[in-house]
Structure formats: structure tokens, C-alpha cells
Computed example of a mutant assay.
Amino acid sequence: MKTMQYKGYHAKIEFDADDRIFVGYILGIVDVISFHGESVAELEEAFHEAIDNYLESCAKLNQQPNKPYSGKLMLRLKPELHAAVAKSAELEGLSINRWVAGVLQSASHH
């Protein structure tokens, strides 16, 4: 899946065949933000406008906007799995973090 990106926010894009428009949804935040457009240019403009309006609204309300994912991920593993991961990373000459990031990257098809 391809995503659009603006100011650190990512959006998933779908095509609505009934209305013949592209619809976008912001990923990775609790607040719900969506936008739409009939062309790629219109969609991109609507995406930027949605993010800018969201950030302005949060500032006016004196509230923190939801931030996209930080890149930090805490995992709890069984000790046996932790040991197996550490061994696999060591065999490839990588830190556990780099090895896990590579595995997750491959698994998520990005």
C-alpha cells in the first residue's frame, strides 16, 4: 500500500467507485481526519489542507495534536524467543534492534 506524507503524517488512500473520488484517512493517530478529491492534485491539496486545519484547530483549542508514530516500539517476549532473536541477530552481525527492524520491514512489505 502506498501512502501520502505531509508534515510527518501519513495517509492511506482508497478509491470510492460509487462517488468516483479518492478518499484519504490519516494513519497512526487517535483523532479521525479524512479528506477527498477527484484527482491526485485535488487529493494532495485536500490532504495538506486537512493537516494544516487540524494543527491550527489544536493550537486554537490549546491542545496537543496527536503525533504520528514515534518510531519507538516496546515488545514483551518470552525469554526463549528473546534468546532466539538475539542469536539470529548476532549470526547476521546486527544489533537486535536492527535485526528486528529488518524483519518487520520485510514482513510489512515496505
Score class of each variant (00 low, 15 high):
Lys2Ile: 07
Thr3Cys: 07
Tyr9Glu: 00
Lys12Ala: 13
Lys12Met: 09
Lys12His: 11
Phe15Asn: 07
Phe15Met: 08
Arg20Asn: 15
Arg20Ala: 15
Ile21Glu: 05
Ile21His: 05
Phe22Tyr: 06
Phe22Met: 05
Phe22Ala: 00
Val23Lys: 01
Gly24Trp: 04
Tyr25Ser: 09
Tyr25Leu: 09
Leu27Cys: 06
Leu27Gln: 06
Gly28Val: 00
Gly28Arg: 02
Gly28Cys: 01
Ile29Ala: 01
Val30Pro: 06
Val30Trp: 10
Ile33Met: 02
Ile33Cys: 02
Ser34Arg: 09
Ser34Glu: 09
Phe35Asn: 00
Glu38Tyr: 11
Glu38Phe: 14
Glu38Asn: 14
Ser39Met: 07
Val40Gln: 13
Glu42Val: 08
Leu43Pro: 02
Leu43Asp: 03
Leu43Ala: 01
Glu44Tyr: 05
Glu44Pro: 01
Glu45Asp: 11
Glu45Gly: 13
His48Lys: 13
His48Val: 10
Glu49Asn: 15
Glu49Pro: 08
Ile51Pro: 01
Asp52Arg: 05
Asp52Leu: 05
Asp52Gly: 04
Tyr54Pro: 03
Glu56Lys: 05
Ser57Thr: 08
Ser57Trp: 09
Ser57Ala: 12
Ala59Lys: 13
Lys60Phe: 12
Asn62Cys: 14
Asn62Thr: 12
Asn62Asp: 15
Gln63Glu: 13
Gln64Asp: 10
Gln64Ser: 14
Pro65Asp: 01
Lys67Phe: 10
Lys67Gly: 07
Lys67Gln: 12
Pro68His: 04
Ser70Pro: 00
Ser70Gly: 07
Gly71Pro: 00
Gly71Thr: 02
Leu73Ile: 05
Leu75Ile: 06
Leu75Lys: 05
Leu77Asp: 01
Leu77Val: 05
Lys78Trp: 10
Glu80His: 11
Leu81Arg: 06
Leu81Gln: 10
Ala83Arg: 15
Ala83Thr: 10
Ala83Phe: 11
Ala83Ser: 11
Val85Glu: 01
Ala86Val: 04
Ala86Lys: 14
Ala86Cys: 02
Ser88Cys: 09
Ser88Ala: 15
Leu91Ile: 15
Leu91Gly: 12
Glu92Ala: 10
Glu92Gln: 15
Gly93Pro: 03
Leu94Lys: 08
Ile96Tyr: 06
Ile96Ser: 05
Asn97Met: 07
Arg98Ala: 10
Ala101Met: 06
Val103Glu: 01
Gln105Pro: 04
Ser106Asn: 11
Ala107Arg: 08
Ala107Cys: 09
Ala107His: 11
Ser108Phe: 08
His109Pro: 02
His110Pro: 07
His110Phe: 13
